[in-house]
Design a binder for these strands. Structure first.
Ligand SMILES: [Mn+2]
Ligand SMILES: [Mn+2]
Ligand SMILES: [Zn+2]
Ligand SMILES: [Zn+2]
Lengths: 126, 126
DNA sequence: CTAATTTCGCAACTCAGTTGCATTAGTACA
DNA sequence: TGTACTAATGCAACTGAGTTGCGAAATTAG
C-alpha cells in the first residue's frame, strides 16, 4: 500500500518531474506552483515522493536543496546514485550518468557519496 | 603585502586552525569564539582567510558551510583540492588526501569538483 | 603622532526550511 | 452512494544561517 494519496497537489508536482526530465530546486518549484499550493505543502510532498523513490534530492553549490526524477528506485531500494553538474552561470543542474571510482577509505564506513561538478553548461560555455 | 591586518580576532581564528588540523563548521566556530567576537566578524574573517589561501571552504551534508586549513595555497593559487568525509553520527568532517578520477564531461567546462563522502568515522563505526 | 583605511560590533534584515494546529479532502468499506 | 477514518493541506508563526549598513575602534604607513 502506497503511503501516498493522489491529491491534486501531488499530481501537479509529479507532472513537473514527469514531463521535463530536469532537476529543480525547491525554491524554483515553490515559485512554479505558487497560487496552486502552499510552500509547506511543496516541502512535504517532496519529502514523501523522495521516500517513495520517485525523486531524489541533493544539495546544489549554494547549499540549497534540489530534486530530480529517479530511474528505477522504489520505497525500499534507492539505487539511482549518480553525480550532478551545476552551471555557475545559469544555475541549472543536470544528473550525470557517470561512473566515478572512489578508492576505499580505511577505518571508515562510507554510506553514500555526493559529487557535484561545477562549471559552465553547454549553452553557457559558448 | 597581505590584505589582512593582524587583529586580535584574526589571530584567534587563525590559531584555531593552526593548532588542530580539523575542519570546522562556521556555526561551531561562532560558538567557540562567542564572547571574544561577534558572529559577523567570524564570517568576515573566514572570507578573508579563504581569499588569502589560508583556509578553504565547502558545504557539509546539511548544506552548512565548513572551513579547514589549506596546504600550500596562496591568494593567487588555490591548489589544495580534495574530497571530504562527514560522519553522520558525530558530524565531524575530515579532509581526505584521495585522488579521485572524474571522467571528462563533453560539452561542459568543469571548474571544480565537490566530493563529500558520508558515513561513519572511525570512532563512530565501532 | 597623525591620517588614511581597514576591521569590528551591533542591530536589523533576508530567506530557506520547519512546526503546530485547525480544516479539508482521499479512500476504504458498509 | 454515504459515512468514518486518517492523510494531506493552508496558514501563520517560528528557527537559524548568513548578510548588510553604518558608526566606532583598531591597525598601519609615513
Ligand atoms: Mn540526479
Ligand atoms: Mn579540506
Ligand atoms: Zn548554464
Ligand atoms: Zn563520527
Amino acid at each position: 500500500m502506497g503511503v501516498i494519496r493522489k491529491t491534486k497537489a501531488v499530481t501537479t508536482v509529479l507532472n513537473i518531474f514527469e514531463n521535463k526530465n530536469e532537476a529543480k530546486s525547491v525554491v524554483s518549484l515553490i515559485e512554479l506552483v505558487k497560487g496552486d499550493m502552499n510552500k509547506t505543502t511543496v516541502y512535504r510532498i517532496l519529502d514523501r515522493l523522495e521516500q517513495d523513490g520517485f525523486i531524489h534530492s541533493f544539495n546544489g553549490k549554494d547549499g540549497l536543496k534540489w530534486y530530480a526524477k529517479c530511474n528505477g528506485c522504489s520505497a525500499h531500494k534507492h539505487s539511482d546514485k549518480h553525480p550532478h553538474f551545476q552551471c555557475k552561470e545559469c544555475d541549472k543542474v543536470e544528473c550525470l550518468s557517470l561512473e566515478v571510482n572512489i578508492p576505499i577509505l580505511k577505518n571508515h564506513k562510507v554510506d553514500s557519496t555526493d559529487i557535484l561538478l561545477i562549471g559552465q553548461c553547454e549553452s553557457c560555455s559558448v
